[in-house]
Design a protein around this nucleic acid. Structure first.
Length: 592
RNA sequence: GGGGCCGUGGUGUAGUUGGUCAACAUACCGGCCUGUCAAGCCGGAGAUCGCGGGUUCAAGUCCCGUCGGCCCCGCCA
């Protein structure tokens, strides 16, 4: 080894020891006589002193060192003189007096600062990702990520799970997200698909009798990107045989609590995790992934305004819609302009408009619609909403999905503005009793709301024939701070039920056999009841790290256009490569 | 596919209503300096203002297009 110690581990107890260090120049301070170098490696920073009285060689080389040069330093640990201790760094009590300094490699001036986490254009960071990764923030995030994954492996190993790898080259199944395809050289005109998740394979591992499986699995989805969505991402994928919903949920809850308490400094809002049914979540928060760090719940007032003089409210209720509102504490002073901003936000979610009512500190009502109501009606609304002087009430009248979308967006925005979304707090919750299907208007059929192997609730089985939309699935989502962190279900293990589901989603048996024949066949050879869950590692670590984008917890992420700015991928390939793969490129018309 | 924001020396920013406005900090280079740790002091170099076109006597500034980044909608079983 070129080093005997790590920079960041040296303490007063090492005083007097001869050490050899190797690392990067974080900063160099040249005093003419003395030269100080803050030497950095993964473990941290230590101050090296080059004193010509001790070693002219060390001093000469140190004076030539520039930022990010790679140095090897031989020297002695000594206590810093009286009054020169630096309490801001862990190694601040000591310094290393250099006997010899070797430049292992010089460095060009980096395109941005390595030694401080000052904001830098993200495109530049991505182009020089290997330098960006030297920065403290990224080192911290990736170390955290390692610890989380290590915790997961240890936790599951201790509970009898086996980590089993599944293929990256697999079969395309057009349901769900768009597949990334890989052309086959050996089979002209045929393609593999990269897995969107190892869903089918893990179920087959249950058929195979492994009983408890997990994998830290890379997944691929060719859809447009977001701050929390990359074309490739990592899931903790797990599956268990002979379990019921409660078993999977209990295991994952224990795992998550362990991760938070062992790997992060952040605080759990509640444990055990609260549970909401899908219907309850939609009713109270307008979303199936509510941020429970704050209240500001949705309150329905349809019954209070059904007969009112405000035509929009009255007509909405009459036509089967609803009127709901949220109470925003302390925002009664919002200006017309600020309310217009909120209205725009509601409109973006499809609402026709936003009705508002401010209860001033003095107890007076200022409102866009109260003039159409009787005093008694207004009173009852204030009462139902729990309004207090200084509050702003916001209402949306529309069909339930639109009301939910608009108020949910407003709730998050105002929670943010009011500082109620504390990044130090992690508010987990389970969402259960999802509808098994969602109606697809365009295709005129039912779509699985989770995936097509999700088992119905046993008591809802008859509904598959009579009222599929009312059937609930044995599905569970884990949500944290408004992010979906995990989702899973108990799977169908009976052929008749599976075929019924295929029928409902418009797959005839022949198509089903074409795409899932291997599954259907496997299920006939003694399939144990089984279920599992998949958890987005990137999103989880993002929350634990207090970041707002999963790019900050991935070593080499892609841009919003799915480009790797460092390697310049994707890129054209040689004509010979295309030929071998039996591919011809047809670019879109320039005109269109 | 659609909407919003952004692009000025290496980096981060400032640049009213178009007219010595290309500025500041930091980094970089050179000099001085034996206790700094955001070292200090002195000096220097470095930008055709993302790119292309247009309006104008005059464009970093206004208009159009284009490229790139970020956020959002659609999409993401």
């Amino acid at each position: 080894m070129l080093k005997t110690h790590h920079c960041g581990e040296l303490r007063a107890e090492h005083v007097g020891q001869a050490v050899t260090l190797a690392g990067w120049v974080n900063r160099q301070r040249d005093h003419g006589g003395l030269v100080f170098i803050d030497l950095r490696d993964r473990s941290g920073i230590v101050q090296v002193v080059a004193d010509p009285a001790r070693s002219p060689q060390a001093h000469e080389v140190a004076s030539r060192a520039r930022q990010e040069y790679v140095l090897q330093v031989r020297g002695t640990v000594r206590r810093r003189p009286e009054g020169l201790v630096n309490p801001q760094i862990p190694t601040g009590e000591i310094e290393v007096l250099a006997d010899e300094v070797v430049i292992l490699n010089p460095a060009k001036t980096p395109p941005f600062y390595i030694y401080e986490d000052a904001p830098v254009d993200e495109a530049l960071r991505l182009r020089y990702r290997y330098l960006d990764l030297r920065r403290q923030r990224m080192q911290r995030n990736l170390i955290l990520r390692h610890r989380v994954v290590k915790y997961i492996r240890d936790f599951l190993d201790a509970r009898g799970f086996l980590e089993i790898e599944t293929p990256i080259l697999f079969k395309s199944t057009p349901e769900g997200a768009r597949d990334y395809l890989v052309p086959s050289r050996i089979h002209p005109g045929k393609f593999y698909a990269l897995p969107q998740s190892p869903q089918q394979l893990k179920q087959l591992l249950m058929v195979a009798g492994f009983e408890r499986y997990f994998q830290i699995a890379r997944c691929f989805r060719d859809e447009d990107l977001r701050g929390d969505r990359q074309p490739e991402f990592t899931q903790l994928d797990l599956e268990m045989s002979f379990v019921e919903r409660e078993d999977v949920m209990a295991l994952v809850e224990e795992l998550m609590i362990g991760i938070v308490e062992e790997c992060s400094e952040r605080r759990l809002a509640t444990k055990p995790f609260p549970r909401l049914t899908y219907a309850e979540a939609m009713d109270r928060y307008g979303t199936d992934k509510p941020d429970l760090r704050f209240g500001m719940e949705l309150v329905e007032i349809s019954d209070l305004v059904a007969e009112s003089g405000f035509r929009i409210f009255r007509q909405t209720v009459a036509s089967g819609g609803q009127v709901k509102g949220i109470r925003v504490p302390g925002c009664a002073t919002y200006s017309r302009r600020q309310i217009d901003e909120l209205t725009e936000l509601a409109k973006k979610e499809g609402a026709a408009g936003l009705a508002w009512l401010a209860l001033t500190e003095g107890g007076k009502v200022r409102s866009s619609f109260a003039k159409f109501l009787s005093e008694g009606e207004t009173e009852r609304i204030l009462d139902r909403m729990g309004a207090e002087p200084g509050d702003l009430l916001l209402f949306v009248a529309d069909q339930p999905p639109t009301v939910a979308a608009a108020l949910s967006a407003l709730r998050l925005e105002l929670g943010e503005r009011l500082g109620l979304r504390d990044p130090e707090v992690l508010a987990f919750c389970w969402i259960v009793d999802f509808p098994l299907f969602e109606w697809n208007e365009e295709e005129n059929r039912w779509d699985p709301s989770h995936h097509l192997f999700t088992a119905p609730m046993p008591e809802d089985l008859p509904l598959l024939d009579t009222d599929p939309g009312a059937a609930r699935g044995q599905q569970y989502d884990l949500v944290c701070n408004g992010e979906e962190i995990a989702g899973g279900s108990i799977r169908i293990h009976q052929r008749e039920v599976q075929e019924k589901v295929f029928g409902l989603i418009g797959l005839d048996l022949e198509e089903a056999r074409e795409r899932f024949g291997h599954m259907l066949e496997a299920f006939e050879y003694g399939t144990p009841p089984h279920g599992g869950i998949a958890s987005g590692i990137d999103r989880l670590v993002m929350l634990l790290a207090g970041e707002t984008s999963i790019r900050e917890v991935m070593a080499f992420p892609k841009t919003g256009q799915a480009v790797d700015l460092m390697a310049n991928a994707p890129s054209p390939v040689e004509p010979e490569q295309l030929e071998e793969l039996h591919l011809r490129i047809v670019l879109p018309d320039e005109e269109e």
